[in-house]
């Protein structure tokens, strides 16, 4: 167990962990606005940790990525999702299968599970202090999946997907010293466009079905 050991614990680790915790707290509330707020905070933590990584590894590309995260995700996507929520008038997600508090506690358990998983993986020597990033990344991915599974509304599905994607980014940042810059930017563009298109489709779902509860979209069946 390295991640929580007293000597490694630096500010960077705290921030990396904070992003996973923000995601877990996001699971606990059904208010879409608070969910988006938590998402925004989570990406802010990501942007900060990318900055720190840049400082530690002396890599210019991480600074650019951090800036892109901050402007595209923390500000751009959050505002866009707020706007959709407001336009559609979706305030609350009632949840599916699990009560929300239980889902939140489950995601804490998933964090432990993520820690166990990430300990199974080999770590690069020079990235050893960032091993906690693996835990946080896997935890974000699992939390994102849990979020998608326990929610009804289309907009929550998008948030869950974005959380998952954040986890993948964090994993890449801390486990493989980051992807090449142009790949990173391409991924950004794809995710950004995916969210924009999903937003448009959510509008259309609202328009055609008069709700955005995806569990009720069952007209296409075998």
């Amino acid at each position: 167990m390295i991640s929580f050991s007293p000597f490694m614990f630096s500010f960077l680790q705290a921030i990396i962990l904070a992003s996973a915790i923000m995601a877990i707290l996001m699971v606990g509330t059904g208010q879409i606005r608070s969910n988006i707020m938590f998402y925004s905070l989570q990406t802010l933590c990501l942007a900060l940790s990318a900055c720190f990584c840049a400082a530690i590894e002396h890599e210019l590309k991480h600074y650019i990525v951090a800036l892109a995260i901050f402007f595209v995700k923390t500000i751009g996507l959050s505002t866009f999702l707020f706007w959709i929520t407001k336009r559609i008038g979706a305030a609350k997600d009632l949840g599916l299968y699990l009560p929300l508090p239980i889902a939140m506690h489950l995601s804490v358990v998933l964090l432990v599970f993520a820690q166990i998983l990430s300990n199974q993986l080999p770590h690069l020597n020079h990235l050893q202090p960032l091993a906690i990033g693996g835990t946080a990344g896997i935890s974000l991915i699992l939390t994102g999946i849990l979020f998608m599974l326990t929610r009804r509304l289309a907009i929550s599905q998008v948030l869950g997907f974005l959380t998952m994607e954040n986890g993948i980014f964090l994993f890449a940042l801390t486990q493989s010293s980051g992807m090449p810059l142009f790949i990173e930017m391409g991924i950004f563009l794809d995710v950004f466009v995916a969210v924009m298109i999903s937003g448009l489709i959510i509008f259309k779902i609202k328009h055609s079905f008069e709700h955005i509860d995806v569990t009720l979209l069952t007209s296409l069946r075998d």
Partner: peptide
């Protein structure tokens, strides 16, 4: 309606 539903599922 069906197309919107199929697109949503496809995309997500």
């Amino acid at each position: 309606k069906h197309a919107v539903e199929a697109t949503w599922k496809y995309l997500i």
